[in-house]
Structure formats: structure tokens, C-alpha cells
Write a protein that binds this DNA or RNA. Structure first.
Lengths: 159, 159
DNA sequence: GGTGAAAACCTGTCTTC
DNA sequence: GAAGACAGGTTTTCACC
């Protein structure tokens, strides 16, 4: 895997732009979009994957349609004495929990923000108590309900 | 689009589980994974899309490889008098900005948390000043650097 | 890098159960 | 719902530019 950053040319940027919006776009669609041959865009997509610019392709699931009607952000502060190892351990453990959809490790007042999707408020309470407050390394938590959540697949970043 | 929630059967849950991890999995791969015929999983995937369980397919881009070396979460509080309309307007405007990768609308102390990806700290400062602090409806902001960010594509949620 | 062409493979639809 | 079969599209490789 090479180590270049931010040097996507026009065409790569366009390709990424299409794939971010539709991971299943065919090479033919991509070829039309950028004005090159199918085999060429195919090679470029592969290079983007190899370089790690494209890190994978995921289906977007509406959590509320899978019985996860409630989302929350939980701010977590670890105990002041927490070592590197306990931070890593906490992070690894939490991130493996099925309720967790995202984990941010932060600089600032809070050490982590955990984005969770659960069935209802009792599921949320159970999650926080069992997996966060109950952890020895956790000093405090603060939970905010997510009313609305938007992931951006904005046009502007990529051609 | 039907309106059922959380009633995925075993097979649908497995299919979703595979597609969340690899949006480009073929019907053949899915068929093998769940032990049914290709045409059958094909029909099931379509139903999942129609029901809105699967909301789309996106390529995952490593922002740091596209010249966006710095990510931050910006907590935003709007002015107390902010009306429904100004909240909506703020949300729509911010979410369309190319630096914004996610927007959470919250209940609690903060009204919004904005996840941004920018080139560097001066880009971050510019973003916050120009698009957030500068907004009439914004009362205050608090910015935290994201040291590490994990999106979860955990096995456990889906069979 | 880019290309067209060929082979292997996959999707989408239809018919049947 | 599930399955096999088929036509048309798509991916992948390759020899050539």
C-alpha cells in the first residue's frame, strides 16, 4: 500500500464521487461519468482500493427499521490516571459491542463519544450502565438522544 | 414502501450482515452465505431495499487519504429563541457543506454535533468561524479534535 | 496510463413448483 | 417463498498502443 495523500487527479476524484454515492455503480456507469473506457476505470478503481483511498463498500442500514428505534451519543470521560493500555482496552471493548455504530476518540474534555443504536430507552439505560458506567476506567458519562442523524454524501468534496 | 420494523427473519438478517460488510457482494456469494438460490436472495435483497431496510450502498473513503488529514466534532448550541424553522435552516445549510461528514441533531445541552473533515487546523478554524460561529442563530460552539474514529460494522447485530 | 476484445461471471426476469 | 434456466450486462484479464 502506497503512502501518498491528497493527490487524486480529476478523474479519480470523480470516480470516488460516484462510488461514495453508489457503491454498486458499474464500470460502464463510471466509464460514462468520466469519459474513459471501462477497462480504464476498472484499473483506476483497483488502484484506489489498493492505495487505501477507498476502504470498502457498505450497505447503509436504517437502524430504525431493524428494531433499533433509538440512537444516542454517549460522552465518556475516563479516570484521570487512565494509561495508554486502558484507553486502548476500553476502545477495543466498546467498539466490539453490537449496539455501537461509531466510536470517536477525542482530545478535549471528553475522551470518547460513542454512537449507539438500541431498541428503546430501557435498552439505552442497560447499555450505558452495563458497558460504560460499570467500567472501572470510566469516570463519567453523559448521554444525549439523537433526534436526527445525517450522513453526508455531499457532491462538493469530489468533483 | 411498507412500514414494518424489526421483523427481519434469520435469512434477511444474514443478508444484511453480509452487505453491511461488503456492499458489492454478489448474489452468488450471498446465496452461498445463506444457503438459498441466487434468484431467491436476489428477490430478498430487493425487498430489503424496497422496505427501506437497506437505504443505499456507499464506498467508504479514508478522508486522510484525500487531503483531509484532520477531523473534529463541533458541538453547537443555538440561541435560546431559535424557532423550528431556524433549526431546520441551520441543519440544511450545514449538512450541505463539503467539510461536513455527519450531522447529529440532539436533545440535551448541545443542539447539534457536527463531524467535519478538513485539511489542517487552519482549515478547521476557518470552517468553524465562517460556517458556525458566524451564523446568527448559533449561540456557542465547542470543538474537539478526533484522534481516532471507528465505524462499526460489527458482526453481532446481524446474525 | 489508456484501449478494445474475449472469457468468465453476475443480474434480473420468467416459469415452475 | 423458493428454484432453475436464460438473455443481457458486467468484471476481469490480456495483448497492444
Amino acid at each position: 500500500m502506497l503512502q501518498d495523500r491528497g493527490d487524486l487527479d480529476e478523474v479519480d476524484a470523480q470516480i470516488v464521487g460516484v462510488l461514495v454515492r453508489d457503491a454498486r455503480a458499474s464500470n460502464r456507469q463510471l466509464a460514462r461519468a468520466v469519459g474513459l473506457a471501462e477497462s480504464t476505470v476498472h484499473a483506476r478503481v483497483r488502484r484506489l482500493e489498493e492505495r487505501g483511498v477507498i476502504d470498502g463498500y457498505e450497505a447503509v442500514v436504517r437502524q430504525e427499521r431493524v428494531g433499533h428505534g433509538l440512537q444516542a451519543l454517549v460522552h465518556v470521560t475516563l479516570r484521570p490516571g487512565a494509561r495508554q493500555t486502558s484507553i486502548t482496552a476500553f476502545s477495543e471493548r466498546v467498539r466490539a459491542l453490537p449496539e455501537v455504530s461509531q466510536l470517536f476518540f477525542l482530545g478535549g474534555v471528553d475522551d470518547f463519544i460513542v454512537h449507539v443504536a438500541v431498541a428503546d430507552s430501557s435498552g439505552l439505560r442497560r447499555f450505558v450502565v452495563e458497558h460504560l458506567s460499570g467500567d472501572q476506567t470510566v469516570a463519567s458519562t453523559r448521554t444525549s438522544i439523537v433526534f436526527d442523524y445525517r450522513r453526508n454524501v455531499s457532491t462538493a468534496s469530489f468533483g
